[in-house]
Computed example of a mutant assay.
Amino acid sequence: MEEARYGLGGILGSLPGAHYLNHPWRNRDAEFKPAQLATAERCGLIVPPTVITNEPDQARRFVDDYGPVIYKPLRDTDQIDDDGRALTVWIDDVGPDQIDDRMVHTTHLFQQRVNKVADIRMTVVGDRLFPVRIDGSPGVDWRRHYEALTYTLIDAPPDVGKGVRAYVDAFGLTFGAFDFGLDAEGRWWFYECNPNGQWAWLPCSITDQITHAIADRLTNPSGDTT
């Protein structure tokens, strides 16, 4: 499916006369990760300790205080190699010895690594939530290990569902792809929300439900089922 290649909003927005699930301006606002983290916390979601900085000493202190720590891109950018192939910056562990003066040239995001037992991708379409538990990743970034993963559609705890709905309302979104880490105590740690996230790579039994929810929302943008 094309959604798996290009993301939802890009496809729908390119169709003449098509409805948007999210207005492009709402997508733009909701892609800013510092705003995501602050909004998630205000909405009652649990956010790992995080620092955004370009100062090496501050980054080293954070690693010392909160290690193990992961590094993740502050924003998605188009990166290609010399042959024109798309590149991805993977989420990975970082130690104080890896931080040097080169980081002063741009801002970086460091976050305490969640001691997770599984990952969760929750796709939100209007008032419908599709939380999927992802098991089997041998590393920090499950996107590097698709062949090892299993997917199970689960229920979200009421407090998480409430926080997620408050979050999409705060940004004026109808659609969002949320990433969480699940720890051994059952806590859902908010990582980020991609307002234009992919979903068609999930098993068909899950993808079909999301597809129907999107179709329902596009044909009835008000969400009124009466």
Score class of each variant (00 low, 15 high):
2 E>H: 10
4 A>N: 11
4 A>K: 07
5 R>M: 14
5 R>V: 14
5 R>T: 11
7 G>W: 11
9 G>M: 02
15 L>C: 09
15 L>S: 05
16 P>G: 10
17 G>H: 08
18 A>M: 14
19 H>G: 13
21 L>R: 01
22 N>S: 03
26 R>M: 15
28 R>F: 13
30 A>C: 09
30 A>G: 08
31 E>I: 01
31 E>V: 15
33 K>F: 07
33 K>Y: 08
37 L>D: 01
41 E>H: 15
42 R>T: 06
43 C>E: 05
43 C>T: 03
45 L>Q: 11
45 L>G: 13
47 V>T: 01
48 P>K: 13
50 T>G: 11
51 V>R: 11
51 V>P: 07
53 T>V: 06
53 T>Y: 13
53 T>D: 05
57 D>N: 15
58 Q>C: 13
59 A>F: 09
60 R>W: 05
60 R>C: 06
62 F>Q: 06
63 V>E: 10
63 V>W: 08
65 D>S: 12
68 P>K: 05
68 P>V: 11
70 I>K: 02
72 K>L: 14
72 K>S: 05
73 P>L: 07
73 P>G: 00
75 R>P: 00
75 R>M: 06
76 D>Y: 04
81 D>R: 01
83 D>S: 13
84 G>V: 08
86 A>W: 14
86 A>H: 07
88 T>L: 02
89 V>P: 00
91 I>F: 07
92 D>I: 07
95 G>S: 12
95 G>D: 03
96 P>I: 07
96 P>A: 14
97 D>G: 00
98 Q>N: 07
100 D>K: 09
101 D>Y: 02
101 D>G: 09
104 V>Q: 10
105 H>M: 13
106 T>C: 14
107 T>V: 15
108 H>V: 05
108 H>F: 04
109 L>I: 08
109 L>R: 10
111 Q>I: 10
115 N>I: 08
122 M>V: 10
122 M>I: 09
122 M>E: 10
126 G>S: 04
127 D>A: 06
128 R>F: 03
132 V>H: 00
132 V>F: 02
133 R>T: 02
133 R>V: 13
134 I>T: 06
135 D>M: 08
135 D>I: 08
136 G>Q: 03
138 P>G: 05
138 P>W: 09
